[in-house]
Design a protein around this nucleic acid. Sequence first.
DNA 1: CATATTTTTGCAACAGAGTTGCATTTTATT
DNA 2: AATAAAATGCAACTCTGTTGCAAAAATATG
Lengths: 144, 144
Amino acid sequence: MGTKQQITERITALLKDSKLSVTETRVKILELFMKSNGALEHSDIETQTGQSFDRVTVYRTLQTFLDKGIIHKIPTTDTSVRYAVCKSECTEHDHHDHHVHFKCESCGNTTCLDETNIPEISLPKGYAMHNVEVVVSGVCKTCK
Amino acid sequence: MGTKQQITERITALLKDSKLSVTETRVKILELFMKSNGALEHSDIETQTGQSFDRVTVYRTLQTFLDKGIIHKIPTTDTSVRYAVCKSECTEHDHHDHHVHFKCESCGNTTCLDETNIPEISLPKGYAMHNVEVVVSGVCKTCK
DNA sequence: CATATTTTTGCAACAGAGTTGCATTTTATT
DNA sequence: AATAAAATGCAACTCTGTTGCAAAAATATG
């Protein structure tokens, strides 16, 4: 993972590449994503930053990251919205997840299984496929 | 699909099997699901029943159907919650979708592709799989 | 490095989705 | 048909997310 300073440098570079101002909010939220190594929802971010930011700022920051292809959404079956950092293949205009998302029924965490590829799916005639989302639920490595 | 009366009879039987009272609300909402052949969200139901039921009643009815395994949720990347009727394999305590869900980016409808099976996915060591959800987005047969 | 310009943030107020308690109505039971 | 049990509707509330605008911070420019 590297030292704290190295992480900050990487985050700064990432923001500049995306033509975004480097602000305290953005750096802190990206640090959270890097540390968590999984998916976060809005409330996680509010909690873990110790309410140091306004709710509105967090919403807007997440939206900005989405727009720039820095993070992506993960489908859920409830009203929450989960986000995770994108891997290198994603660009601002073309986002694709090629990996499986795993939701642990024990600890509740959602993680990206980067090594697990999504298999080919053949749709019925007349359907055009743009994107595939796979969410597996079960028990994760740590909880077992 | 059968005549309107046949459908009503089927719905009545379904409710009685689940040990639920047969009420106007429940019958009407189940009729909607049967007719739509796709996924509905709460607002669809409110709209299509012509506001004849209280919002609270619709929420409670959907929750009851979920509890009894009559309907299931479909994962989304927004804050909406989508529901679809379960197929025969589902029971109250053990719900599994063995089919793919398709969300059309043009008309916005979500449908169950019953014929399209979910391929095997092999997770990394240490992970236990309970359920797999696949949501494909693209353009559907009708919109193409 | 000081100043001007642009961007971001925080506040207040609002909109919408979903929940809870309780009285009334409907359904099931005998 | 009378009673018991379950479902419904209403009011009020909470939680999540949004919008407009002024203040503050970050970047660009001389």
